[in-house]
């Protein structure tokens, strides 16, 4: 199924993937009593921040992420997507690491877990990173910078 006016969009896959992400976050919340914010979990796993989440549990969550992806890639047989080269990956990684720590969260913590409880901080964070994301892609387009193959 496609979206009128957006031939490349995959709304059904998007919604299905989103529901799975929501179920995963709900399992962490209602089962373990924690926020499924990947940034915070990664910080805990790698000793960058202290939190009540036991370190082994933080690692278990992170190990699960590529496992789930591997299963989907095997089942669908979809071609592997292309990634940026080393330099943009390093610049982007630094910005994402610094930014999400200062901003106390990423797309999962602020986006999925925070917005769904109408957290003021999360709504402001999401509006901000969406705005600078839109502006950055627009600027890269204007300057003719192509990072992806």
């Amino acid at each position: 199924m496609t979206l009128p006016g957006f031939p490349d969009a995959a709304p059904v896959a998007g919604l299905g993937g989103g529901v799975l992400i929501g179920l995963a976050a709900a399992l962490m919340l209602l089962g373990a009593g924690r926020i499924a914010g990947v940034l915070g979990i990664a910080a805990r796993a790698f000793g960058i921040a202290d939190s009540a989440l036991p370190r082994a549990q933080a690692f278990a969550f992170l190990v699960g992420l590529p496992l789930g992806t591997l299963v989907v890639m095997r089942l669908t047989g979809d071609p592997a997507p292309a990634f940026a080269g080393p330099l943009p990956l390093i610049v982007a990684g630094l910005l994402v690491g610094i930014g999400t720590r200062l901003g106390s969260g990423c797309t999962s913590g602020h986006g999925v877990c925070g917005m769904s409880r109408l957290s003021q901080r999360s709504l402001v964070a999401v509006a901000t990173f969406m705005a600078t994301g839109f502006a950055t892609v627009a600027a890269m387009n204007a300057l003719g910078i192509a990072v992806l193959p």
């Binding site: 992400i21 929501g22 179920l23 976050a25 990947v38 496992l67």
Partner: peptide
């Protein structure tokens, strides 16, 4: 949770 999360990320 991480495994379902990763599957959802890729499907989406």
């Amino acid at each position: 949770s991480g495994t379902i999360f990763g599957a959802g990320l890729t499907i989406g």
